[in-house]
Design a protein around this nucleic acid. Structure first.
Lengths: 348, 348
DNA sequence: AGTCCCAATGGTACTGCTATCACCGATGCA
DNA sequence: TGCATCGGTGATAGCAGTACCATTGGGACT
């Protein structure tokens, strides 16, 4: 039975973590605050101890002891809820672990409400803002942030602005890889559904697809490509067109999962057997990909890790600016994975 | 020039007030906290000093020194990610607001890993545990918790155990209401897909449905009801059966959204126009409900509010137990809403 | 008058974390 | 080879309150 000292009994303290990791509390503090003079090995040991003990710093003690507690904002509109939720999980985890406050704010889809929500965040005194898609591409938001001078991290943006840090995967490579996968199964006529034209990732995914075709000796210009808008309904329309072609594709690669799910629905409506008559691939590995049947082959972004990374980078960036740092904010590329499920197979 | 020691310190401290009033800091503390054993004269002197120095107690220091901070665990397995994230948002918000620590732990789906994860939480010294679905129905988990003696809150459970507090919506009423909605549109043959038999909400939703039929003068026994298991695939099978009936239903009410989405897919495959030829209703308002097309009419639970409520109730419960309180833990019913989208309409 | 008790107050230790400085071994440089 | 420097780490001393116990003095009681 564990014995707790005199007063209020409660959670794990920095001292316990220190003891477990075999270092001094000071070193643990350094690790938590991402300070730079700590050996990677020591840092790893401390991290492990933190994990095992589920340590979370006590914010009251931190503030009392004099360290600043940053307040970081997370502004989201209506991206895929699945993306958001996982992202949030990572972001919350990181911010609670480092003991900073995360303020989450939702905004509508119009430029005016976006601006209003951002203002609200800024006025509440945030030191930095995390921008998941599609906000990270909104020019007006970025401009407003630049003007206000707070730090920002754009998440999963295709082409980052110069003033903001970014976390993302290599969309081009991921699309390239998925296309290679379809080609290697034996598909030669592969349809593609593009993403929303105002998001830069759309282009990157398209080019990854086209280039992979070209490298395989096929004519990219001959590939059936339809415009989509990242939502289910646009996927239905695009699928209708692609599947009505005289030279019907044996595989369709949609630039996100929602559209891929729509392709699946359309295929079923037309009496096509997936994956025998038609292979379908998506992108993002959102919740829907695993829910529907057959489950979608897709590309997974390490979303939770991106959330963690976004928060951590933002904190660095805030400190960098406080310290009068010069140069450009950091960029970070995370690894994606190809998730093979039941919606793809060799053509009949 | 006043000399401040070492660090940044700012603002008036309790010691300065004490010196000015000619008493000890402890006495000032007593005055601030309205404790009873202080002479009116002393109290007045202290008050005056506080006024003059414009003293405000430092909340961080108060929290650190004073109130015990509880540690509460949140154990989740693999519910809908969307549910979880929104729930988490509420829970975190509440716990950070009240200054308590929230430890989140994920566990696998098998009874063994559930138990292991719970043990880990308990050993890390949590004072209470929040159990979102489906864990709140796991007998082994509940038994383990009862044995350990920590407080618990079951979230969105159908039929709570006697020892745990609960936050939920009235599933019976919600299903009843949705059925009334379908009836009011003019449907007379309404199919129902039941939820997983080991979750108590399944029964409640079924009975809400059946009773609403009865009250409308229809024969509940004649209603086409199929077994489902809360997943997409079971929805496909159930929909196949329901739509193959000679007296085909003009509406189908599925006990959750995933199954409703499967009904939609099946309807499309059979060439039925939704909602003209068939109305479809779901339950939960998960991500998929708004993604697919036509979007599902469904029932929304106030998930974030449930997260907040769960944490707050758990804290109350912990305090109640500490205080040797008797009687049963609290129960709380939150309000649900019927979300009307495009998947329901009057029959053709 | 002596004892007891309790209200009023003070002293000390402690909350969990970090600023600051001291320390130590390893390198850089003359 | 000797000395300055520097990166990594630890010891100590607070931060601003409160819990807990000790102390005191004046009434109530015997």
């Amino acid at each position: 039975m564990e014995k707790r000292r005199g007063r209020s009994s409660q959670g794990v303290t920095i001292r316990e973590v220190a003891a477990r990791a075999g270092v001094s509390p000071m070193t643990v503090s350094r690790v938590i605050n991402n300070e730079n003079n700590v050996t990677p090995a020591t840092s790893a040991a401390v991290m492990a101890a933190i994990q095992e003990l589920k340590y979370t710093p006590n914010p009251a003690a931190r503030r009392l002891a004099g360290s600043e507690t940053f307040r970081i904002g997370l502004l989201y509109s209506n991206p895929s809820v699945a993306f958001l939720s996982e992202f949030l999980l990572g972001a919350l985890d990181e911010s609670s672990k480092t003991g900073h406050q995360l303020v989450v704010e939702k905004c509508g889809a119009t430029a005016a409400t976006e601006k209003a929500a951002l203002q609200k965040l800024l006025q509440s005194g945030v030191d930095g803002v995390v921008l998941p898609p599609p906000l990270c591409e909104a020019k007006s938001i970025l401009a407003e942030i630049a003007k206000s001078g707070v730090a920002a991290v754009a998440v999963a943006a295709g082409q980052p602005g110069p003033d903001v840090a970014t976390v993302r995967i290599d969309n081009y490579k991921a699309a390239h890889r998925m296309t290679q996968h379809l080609l290697s199964l034996g598909h030669r006529t592969i349809g593609f559904i593009k993403g929303h034209p105002n998001q830069t990732v759309s282009d990157q995914r398209l080019h990854g697809f086209l280039d992979a075709l070209g490298e395989a000796g096929l004519d990219p210009k001959a590939a059936p490509v339809e415009q989509g808008y990242f939502n289910y309904r646009s996927g239905l329309a695009a699928a209708d067109k692609l599947l009505a072609l005289k030279d019907r594709p044996t595989a369709i690669f949609a630039a996100n999962d929602d559209m891929a799910a729509a392709v699946l629905a359309t295929a079923h409506r037309l009496g096509l057997n997936v994956p025998v008559d038609l292979s379908i691939a998506g992108f993002d590995d959102t919740l829907i990909a695993g829910t529907i049947w057959p489950a979608l082959t897709t590309v997974r972004q390490p979303i939770a890790a991106m959330g963690r990374a976004a928060v951590s980078m933002l904190l660095d960036e805030v400190k960098r600016r406080r310290g009068g740092g010069t140069g450009a904010p950091a960029q970070q590329l995370l690894r994606h994975t190809l998730v093979e499920r039941e919606s793809t197979a060799a053509p009949a």
